[in-house]
Amino acid sequence: MIVTWPLRLIGLVLWFMWQIAVSSFVVMRDVLTHDDDSDPIIVEYRTAPLTSWELAMLALMVNITPGTLVLATRRVPGQEADAKLERWALFVHVMYENRDEALASFRGTEKRIVHAMRATGGGR
C-alpha cells in the first residue's frame, strides 16, 4: 500500500482541482447573473477520527473551495483507540448547498483525504 501513496496524493490534488473549478463556475454564474442562487446556512460537520494533519487538510480544502468557509472547530469528546486520532466538529458556512448535500460533500472529501494521506490507504 505504501507504494501507491504518492499516486493517491496526486489523485487527491487532481480531484480537488476539479472541485475548485466546478465550485468557481457556480459562484461566477451566480455573480454574473441577476439570479441569487445562494442559500447561506451554517452546518456542523462531525468528522471520523482524524490526525491533526488530516483535520488541517480538510479545513484547508473547505476554506479554499468557493462558497464554503470553516468558521470554527471543536474537539468532540470521546475515547479513541489511537491517541493520535481525534473526532472534531467543524462549523461551516455554506452558500450553494443544502445541509444534506454539504454534509455528504464534506464526508466524501474527508474520505478522500484519509485515503490519500495515510500510508495504508485508510480504507474508502
Rank of each mutant, 00 (worst) to 15 (best):
56 A>G: 10
90 L>N: 06
60 L>H: 11
31 V>E: 02
113 I>E: 02
33 T>Y: 06
43 V>N: 01
88 W>Q: 08
18 W>T: 09
23 S>Q: 14
55 L>A: 03
103 L>N: 03
15 W>N: 12
50 L>E: 01
53 W>S: 10
30 D>K: 00
80 E>Y: 01
39 D>Q: 13
47 T>H: 03
56 A>T: 07
14 L>W: 13
58 L>Q: 06
40 P>L: 06
82 D>W: 06
15 W>P: 03
4 T>L: 15
59 A>W: 00
82 D>C: 04
20 I>S: 07
120 T>P: 00
25 F>M: 15
48 A>Q: 15
1 M>I: 08
92 V>M: 08
42 I>P: 00
53 W>Y: 06
24 S>N: 14
119 A>N: 04
63 N>W: 06
110 E>G: 07
16 F>I: 09
82 D>E: 11
106 F>R: 02
29 R>F: 11
33 T>E: 08
28 M>F: 13
85 L>V: 03
91 F>Q: 08
18 W>P: 07
101 E>P: 00
3 V>R: 11
58 L>R: 02
54 E>A: 02
99 R>Q: 14
38 S>H: 11
96 Y>F: 15
18 W>V: 12
19 Q>D: 15
40 P>W: 04
58 L>S: 05
9 L>Q: 14
32 L>D: 08
112 R>L: 09
57 M>E: 12
86 E>A: 14
85 L>A: 06
24 S>Y: 06
63 N>V: 05
57 M>S: 11
7 L>G: 10
99 R>S: 13
120 T>W: 15
97 E>F: 12
74 R>G: 13
81 A>G: 10
65 T>P: 11
8 R>C: 08
26 V>E: 02
50 L>Q: 00
30 D>I: 01
97 E>M: 15
85 L>N: 00
85 L>R: 07
87 R>I: 13
34 H>L: 15
